[in-house]
Amino acid sequence: FHVTIHVGDITFHIHGVSEEEVKKLEELVRRGADWREIKKTIEEIEK
């Protein structure tokens, strides 16, 4: 999957994300995680 996440003024683009990881990111966004937490999760996914 290709994912784009907008957190305030920050936009993250992630490529090659599995469905499971998409759900993890959706959950973070849904519970209102700040951009640092989302960035950390994205960095883990990209490894």
Results as ranks from 00 to 15, higher is better:
I42M: 06
R36W: 14
K39A: 11
E19Y: 15
G32T: 03
H15W: 15
S18W: 03
K47R: 12
D34E: 07
H13S: 06
F1L: 12
V3A: 05
E37P: 01
H15M: 07
V17P: 04
I14H: 01
G16W: 14
D9S: 14
I38G: 00
L28I: 05
G32H: 07
V22T: 05
F12K: 00
E20R: 08
W35F: 08
E27Y: 12
H15C: 07
G32D: 03
V7F: 12
I14V: 12
A33W: 01
W35A: 07
F1N: 08
I10V: 13
A33S: 06
H15D: 05
E19S: 09
I42W: 04
G16H: 13
L28C: 02
V29A: 07
D9F: 15
I45W: 15
E37K: 06
V17W: 10
R31S: 09
K23V: 09
E27N: 10
L25A: 01
K24E: 06
D9M: 13
E21F: 14
I45E: 01
I5S: 00
T4A: 04
H15S: 07
V22W: 15
T4K: 04
G16N: 15
E21M: 13
E19G: 11
H15Y: 15
K24G: 04
G32F: 09
E19V: 11
I14S: 01
H13N: 05
H2G: 06
V29L: 13
K24M: 14
K40M: 11
I5R: 00
T11A: 04
V22A: 13
F12D: 00
E19R: 06
I10H: 15
G8K: 03
H2R: 09
D34P: 11
K24T: 10
H13R: 06
E46A: 12
R30Y: 10
R36H: 10
R30E: 09
A33R: 02
I45D: 01
I10C: 13
K47F: 12
I10N: 07
E43A: 10
K24Q: 12
R31A: 07
H13Q: 06
V3F: 13
E44H: 08
I14M: 09
T41S: 08
L28F: 06
K24V: 13
L28R: 02
I5W: 02
L28S: 02
K39N: 05
V7M: 11
K23N: 09
F12A: 01
V3C: 09
R31E: 05
E44S: 07
E19M: 12
F1T: 06
G8L: 04
V17Q: 03
E46I: 15
A33Q: 02
I14K: 01
E37W: 04
V7C: 09
T41R: 11
K39R: 11
T11Y: 08
K40L: 11
E46Y: 14
A33D: 02
K23S: 09
E43Q: 10
I38W: 07
I10K: 15
K40A: 13
A33L: 03
D9W: 15
V29S: 05
H2L: 12
T41D: 01
V17L: 14
E19I: 11
E21N: 15
S18Y: 04
K40I: 08
K40P: 02
D34F: 07
F12T: 01
H2K: 08
F12L: 04
T4N: 03
K47A: 13
E26Q: 14
T11S: 05
F12G: 00
K39G: 05
G16D: 09
E27S: 12
D34M: 04
K24D: 04
R30Q: 11
E20A: 13
W35S: 04
R30A: 13
I38N: 00
S18E: 04
R31T: 07
V7P: 01
F12C: 02
H15L: 06
E43N: 07
E19P: 08
I14P: 00
V3P: 01
H13I: 11
S18C: 03
L28P: 00
F1P: 04
H15F: 15
G8C: 06
H13M: 05
L25R: 00
D34R: 11
H13G: 01
E27P: 01
G8N: 08
W35I: 13
S18D: 05
K47S: 13
R36E: 12
E21G: 13
S18G: 09
V29T: 06
L28N: 01
R30D: 07
D34L: 05
R31I: 07
A33E: 03
R30S: 10
K23H: 11
K39V: 08
V22N: 04
V22Y: 14
T11E: 03
I42G: 01
I38R: 01
A33K: 03
E46S: 12
K47N: 10
V17M: 09
I45G: 02
D9A: 13
W35R: 03
F12R: 01
G8P: 01
K47C: 11
G8W: 04
R30W: 10
A33I: 04
L25N: 00
E44P: 01
E20D: 11
L28Y: 05
T11N: 02
V17G: 03
